[in-house]
């Protein structure tokens, strides 16, 4: 019988611990498929961050390093400078990347650090039980903004792709989501481009995936996807913010 669907080789045979309806799993699969297609699993080192995806070191079937909260870009820098011909990626949540690790993120990008960053923007701190993230929307109710995020007190959400697209070292800054087959395909293409950029030594690539956290949003998987479409995509428009490849017009 022909196999039409199987586990990517770049994923270990370990069940995910992610909640039902969480998009971490989809994104893991996309990254793994890309690593398979590029044939680079053996030379890849992934950097797991602190957040719900911390156990990704168990899931990706490449060498993995678990970084302190926010420091994945620095750890990846140390790896890449030591192993310039290997493929190095980080997998980070929004608290990790855009709050505690913002300095590391901005400076890895501006150095044009030749790494690929998978950024899960789910507008909340998943692992610690649903506190406000730097990407939580205005008015969004979280454990630490029980009356809704009041921007006069808690500030405004950060648009990471827009911010990083201003930096000369950034090769690709693209925001995608995985709410439909069409968007999943776009997301996979973007992730693939992010890795190809690295192989072609183009600099820092970030693929921001607008994601769900049904558990901490207090919604069912279907409701969560709808909430993402109705609320997040307006504040976080999908699209390419920077792309230095010919396709992106060598911006």
């Amino acid at each position: 019988m022909a196999v039409v669907f199987e586990r990517p080789k770049a994923l270990s045979d370990v069940p995910f611990h992610y909640c039902p309806g969480c998009t971490h799993g989809i994104v893991h699969r996309l990254v793994a498929e890309v690593l398979d297609e590029l044939g680079v699993v053996g030379q890849t080192v992934g950097v797991a961050s602190v957040g719900c995806s911390v156990f990704s070191y168990n899931y990706f079937d490449c060498d993995m390093v678990q970084a302190p909260h926010g420091r994945a870009p620095a750890v990846a820098t140390g790896l890449k400078r030591s192993l310039p011909d290997n493929v190095i990626f980080t997998y980070q949540g929004d608290g990790d990347l855009a709050a505690i690790g913002m300095a590391e993120t901005v400076h890895a990008a501006t150095r044009g650090e030749n790494i690929t960053v998978i950024f899960i923007n789910n507008a909340i701190y998943g692992m610690t039980g649903g506190q406000m993230a730097p990407t939580s929307l205005p008015g969004q109710v979280t454990q630490t903004t029980p009356y809704g995020r009041d921007t006069s007190v808690a500030g405004h959400p950060i648009r990471v792709c827009e911010l990083l697209s201003t930096l000369s070292g950034t090769a690709l800054a693209q925001r995608v989501t995985v709410d439909s087959v069409k968007n999943v395909n776009i997301a996979k293409k973007a992730i693939k481009k992010g890795f190809e950029n690295q192989i072609n030594k183009r600099g820092y690539s970030i693929i921001e995936v607008v994601s769900t956290c049904p558990t901490n949003w207090g919604l069912s998987p279907q409701e969560a996807m709808k909430w993402l479409q109705d609320n997040m995509l307006e504040y976080y428009p999908l699209g390419v913010y920077k792309d230095v490849t010919a396709e992106g017009g060598n911006k």
Binding site: V47, V65, V75, G78, L79, E104
Partner: peptide
């Protein structure tokens, strides 16, 4: 943390 990465 760069040292952590390089040592890894």
């Amino acid at each position: 943390n760069m040292v952590l990465g390089a040592s890894s």
